[in-house]
Design a protein around this nucleic acid. Structure first.
Lengths: 164, 164
DNA sequence: CATTTTGCTTAGGGGACCTAACCATTATAC
DNA sequence: GTATAATGGTTAGGTCCCCTAAGCAAAATG
């Protein structure tokens, strides 16, 4: 990729992603799912299988305090549970999704689906395929677990909240 | 698009866009451009030509108070200027970008370019094209100005912060 | 054992959204 | 031609998400 292409791509991302973000967030807000934008991904991950906090922070690319708070918020809503520490290692608290949580995920997905379907309706087939492919690429780029970095408080394994 | 496709697409967007958002925001933060994610688009728009506040709120899909605050923040940084009201209509205050603002935009673009280029480096040509196309579709969908809605405080003309 | 590392939490702060409520200034309606 | 809306903006108050710094307890390591 040439310098110009990189810059164009950067501008595109910087202009478009926040816009999409705002729109989706607004849709969820209006659907009464206030804190969903950040929690949705978490629920998805946790539906797969329970995880520890560090793992979740890594996967989502946020700091551990942030993840701790998010989980606390979701716990209060009854969407997840901090499982009792195991005999193996009493430090870790595995996070599990509850039935309520699964239902919430379903609800949010349905809500988003409705709104997005509306927005996607006027889009032709070719564009939809392009959208799908493009999202796939973004996923590959941003959802992978890049090389670890050094130092405390920096998600040593996996994605980190970009420190320098 | 079938229901299943819509849902899959919704899930993809809900999972991927926030991730990208966080990553990009973190990059800019670490580059010392703290409030850039939201302001970048504004600067881009204003570099084209001055706009009034209402217009900007519409284009960005946010409420007017939000836009007012954003502009105030950017004004404090010296990135934009609230032009003196005209004879024509003393209510409107046109927002103009300053030289400092243009420079900031350039700086942020370069910074983002650097980081993104790094992330995009391991991506093959086909994927890059897909990414580009996909972003184009997103732009078409989310950056267009959809039908107006009714009521005060709701960005009557153009994109609105989704109310119901 | 003393020290470090690891998993997690608490404390404190910032940015970006929102709704509600409030001025001005124009435009409309009797 | 004044009363009444409608329009452009701002202020006030609140939520959510994200961060760094600074703990605390349990495990691993010398």
């Amino acid at each position: 990729m040439t310098r110009d292409q990189a810059r164009e791509c950067a501008r595109d991302i910087l202009q478009i992603i926040p816009l999409v973000m705002r729109t989706v967030a607004a849709q969820l807000r209006s659907a009464g799912e206030l804190p969903a934008p950040a929690h949705f991904g978490l629920l998805s991950i946790l539906c797969e299988r329970p995880r520890m906090l560090t793992e979740l922070a890594s996967l989502q690319g946020v700091s551990m305090p942030t993840m701790s708070n998010s989980i606390s918020a979701m716990e209060e809503r009854g969407w997840v549970r901090r499982a009792a520490p195991t005999e193996q290692d009493r430090r870790v608290a595995m996070i599990e999704v509850t039935t309520t949580g699964r239902a919430a995920l379903e609800r949010v997905a349905r809500s988003a689906e409705t709104h997005l379907a509306e927005m996607l309706a006027p889009v032709d087939v070719t564009s939809r395929r392009r959208l799908h492919n493009g999202l796939g690429v973004l996923r590959k780029i941003f959802a992978s677990e890049p090389a670890a970095s050094a130092g405390r408080q920096r998600n040593r394994r996996g994605r980190r909240p970009y420190v320098a």
